[in-house]
Amino acid sequence: MGQFILRRIGLMLITSICLTFIVFFLTNLFPNLEKLAKTQGNFRMSEAEVTSFLEDRGYLQPLPVKYGQWLGVLPGYIIEGKDGTIRGKCIKPGMQLKDATKFCGVLQGDWGFSTVFKDDIGKLVLIRLSLTGKLMFWVMLLMIPSALIIGILAGMREGSRTDRTLSTISITTTATPEYVSGVIFIAVFSSTAFGLKWFKGTATKAMEDANFENFFLPVLTIALYGMGYIARMTRASMAEVMTAQYIRTARLKGVSFTNIVMKHALRNALIAPFTVIMLQFPWLLNGVVIVETLFNYKGFGWVLVQAAGNNDIELLLAVSAVSVVVVLLTQLISDIGYVYLNPRISVT
C-alpha cells in the first residue's frame, strides 16, 4: 500500500509539473504578453514600448528559465531597465535590492504578485479558497445525503413506480447545467416578474454573513447537477446488489425488507457511489466557477474568471496549480478508498 501511494504521488507531481508548464506556455505566448503590457501600462503603447516594458519585467527571458524561476529552482531575475530602475522577481515593491532573496518561487512558498488584484497571491488564493470551501461544504451536505437516499429508494425495488419517478428526476437534474438551473431559480424565486422573492438573486453578502435567504440558491444550483449523477450510480449499484444470492437467502430466511436493505444491501451498494462522489470534484469545480459568476460570490471560481480574463499570469498559474492538485488528490483518495471499502481488490 505504501509503495502504491508513493508511486501515485510521484505520478501526481509529474502531472502537475506538466500541467503548470502548459498553462505557463499558453499564458506566455506573445499576444498574451502584449495584452498584459497594454493593460498594465497604457493601451496606446507602441510596439517598441511594449517590448521594453516586457523586457524590463523579465517576461522575454526564455520559457524554461522563466518557468524555473516561477518554480523556485532557478534564481530570480534582476534586470536593470532602460529607464534606470532595477527590477527583480524577488524584489517586492518597497524593498531594496540587497534585502531580496536569491530564489523566490513556489518551492519557497512565494506564489508571486497578482497584477489584477495588486495583492500577494498566496494570501489572496487562500482567502478565496476558504470562501469556496464554505460553499462546497454546504453543497456536499445537501448533495450527498439526498443523492444517496434517492438512489437507494429507486434501486431498492427496480422497475417500481417510485423507481421510475426518481430516475426521471435524476436524469432531469443531470441534464440541467448550472447556468440553466441557476437562471431558472433566480427568475422564479427572486425576480419581480414572478413576485415570489423568497431568496436573494445574488450571494455577495453571503461571503461575510451567509444565511438561508442569500446562500440557498447557489448551494442548490451546484448540488442539483451533481446529485442526479450520484443518485443514478447509487441506484445501479443498489439494484445490482438486490439481485445477489445472499439477499435472496436473507429473504427466504424471513428477514424483513427494511432489515435487508439497511443491514445487508446498503454496505455493499455504497462502494461504487463513494468513488463517484470523489470523482465528482473536478466537475464541481466547473459548477463553482459558473455559480460564483452567476451569483457574484467572490470565491475561487470567480478569481479564476478574473485571472483568465485579464491574463494575470502568476495568479492563473496558482489557480490552476491548486485546482489540478485538488483533482489529482481526489482521484488518489478515491482509489485508496475503493481498496479499503472493497476487500476483493488489492493494489499489489
Binding site: T15, L19, V23, L26, T27, P282, L285, N286, V289, I290, L304, V305, A308, G309, L316, V319, S320, S323, V324, V327, L328, Q331
Partner: peptide, 11 residues
C-alpha cells in the same frame, strides 16, 4: 482530464 474544463477554455 485533470485540467478544469473552464480554465482550458479560457486559455
Amino acid at each position: 482530464l485533470a485540467f478544469p474544463v473552464i480554465l482550458l477554455f479560457y486559455l
